[in-house]
Design a protein around this nucleic acid. Structure first.
Lengths: 110, 110
DNA sequence: TTCATATGTCCGCTTTCACGTATATATTAA
DNA sequence: TTAATATATACGTGAAAGCGGACATATGAA
């Protein structure tokens, strides 16, 4: 493939990954995997103040990781694509294995 | 689950995602999915200078996303877990769909 | 129109991160 | 031990991202 084109794809790919590279946003995405929620419910379930929630939701919105739908005065957020959760689950499994290995090392030290 | 514990997991989860949130590192990981490579070969295939390659490799090493093995004067890097590539592929598929939708919109405008 | 509620943005501040140049380390061969 | 090769780090700089408090907007009801 063309080198410049490949770089542009990698850039966009990295921007999507960037969305996932924050613990609050991960928490938000898993909260939404249960179903749509408005901002208040998300603040509650993730434990953030309003500006923080809004900022992170904006990041996710701008990268099209979440969708919004207004219902009266509330705005409901939902996942745009379940594969994002699948990807997060894969990485979480990798993490689990890393931690298990470290735990085994720790036990071997005793 | 305990809230503080959950936050700590999300933090580690985010640190893994952080590894993926850079176009150079994505390029490195895909290059390694073909098999182990030393730094020189990676520089070639990804098109970076040495300090840049070393820095990114350090990030991937510290998060255990890659393994290293010395062979004489060369150091060979390899993927620590193929599921990282699986996760990247899922996200790339999400990206492809997003771009396809935008492309359809662009055509509809003509 | 005025008020209350839900959501979003702006500001200053601090931290993190990526870059390139120059320098350091480690391994092998002479 | 010296030189050569392959790899890694240190440093200064500039850009980007996160935070919380104050402010702004939009919808619906009185």
């Amino acid at each position: 493939m063309d080198k410049a084109l490949q770089q542009e794809i990698d850039q966009l790919h990295a921007e999507i990954c960037q969305c996932l590279a924050d613990p609050r946003r991960i928490s938000i995405l898993y909260a939404l995997s249960d179903g749509p929620k408005n901002v208040g419910a998300l603040m509650e379930s993730v434990g953030m103040d309003r500006p923080t929630a809004s900022r992170h939701l904006k990041v996710l919105r701008e990268r099209s990781m979440v969708r919004t739908e207004r219902d009266g005065v509330s705005i409901y957020y939902s996942l745009a694509d379940d594969r994002v959760i699948q990807a997060l689950d894969l990485l979480r499994a990798v993490l689990a294995e890393l931690l298990a290995k470290r735990s085994a090392l720790a036990e071997a030290l005793e």
